[in-house]
């Protein structure tokens, strides 16, 4: 949900730097981007747009309850 998966990552860290809410981090062993805090993803797609190899997949659904003003 929200940010879903990373496939074909080249470890350039562009997405990590570009994510405003610190959702993605570099895995120190594999040297690849890893989704660590998906619950804080604001589904803004900046990471995907900054990724040079289009490795990131994002879904419009949020992984935690969505609180709005009326329903």
């Amino acid at each position: 949900m929200s940010i879903v998966s990373i496939n074909g990552c080249i470890g350039c860290e562009e997405c990590i730097k570009s994510c405003p809410t610190d959702v993605i981090r570099l895995n120190r062993d594999t040297k690849k981007a890893e989704i660590l805090y998906p619950e804080d993803c604001q589904i803004c797609h900046l990471c995907r747009m900054y990724c040079p190899v289009d490795a990131i997949t994002i879904s419009p659904e949020k992984s935690i309850p969505v609180i709005v003003s009326w329903g």
Partner: peptide
């Protein structure tokens, strides 16, 4: 994008 690709030397895959 290509420049980033070619300079990602910390990636084993690259």
């Amino acid at each position: 994008a290509f420049t980033i690709l070619l300079t990602s030397f910390n990636s084993l895959g690259i």
